[in-house]
Design a protein around this nucleic acid. Sequence first.
DNA 1: ATCGTCAATCGTCGATTTGCGATAAAGAGG
DNA 2: CCTCTTTATCGCAAATCGACGATTGACGAT
Lengths: 109, 109
Amino acid sequence: MAKKKTAKPECDARPVSLPDDATAEELAQLAWAVAHPARVRIVRLLISREACVCGEIVAELPLAQSTVSQHLKILKESGMIQGEIDGPKVCYCINASKLDALKKLIANL
Amino acid sequence: MAKKKTAKPECDARPVSLPDDATAEELAQLAWAVAHPARVRIVRLLISREACVCGEIVAELPLAQSTVSQHLKILKESGMIQGEIDGPKVCYCINASKLDALKKLIANL
DNA sequence: ATCGTCAATCGTCGATTTGCGATAAAGAGG
DNA sequence: CCTCTTTATCGCAAATCGACGATTGACGAT
């Protein structure tokens, strides 16, 4: 934390941006979920298919299964997608509310 | 959620993923520009003020000048903002077309 | 010409991300 | 029971990010 000791008499006097700060982190977090080509493709895939087994996602991407699993974990932690266990498989689907939240936050920029 | 049959889902007969791939990278790149709270705040600041000197941005954020400069560089490289040298100061402003590009890409997700 | 201000860049540090192979865990099926 | 399939997780390595102080370069003013 930079604590400037140098005198700063009359430069800034604007405590106007408090709600800004709150949504800034939320937007950053959601944007970050989509800030990787592989994750963009996963999100698009889930939107277009509405539901998708993990194996299909892996087959769709030029990445190793473990890497795709990592991206899925990141997307799940961000709340953008959800995964339901279905026997030995896992069925992922988009979380519409989170996606809408991202859309709104970006649109209201 | 509509669940596919447990049998093989005949889904992959679609050579449609060429434009997907192209915009996936573009979206990821633009999303990454706003995937940090400080950069979100910078972008918002520039939108609300339309133009802003670097010093003001530094004063607005709880970060060192060099760190803010880094974020400005990232935003500039992504095309989201532009900087014009004005004497010893540098005046930054938003790049509306890039911002719109991001908004469209997110909205069309 | 010299000084002070403003912003970019350099070098460094620690933390995080990204990718992979290998392994473990959980069911389904023979 | 054993085996196969499917997915998550565990290291591990390379790369990148984020933050900072210090320095540099550019410009205006004195």
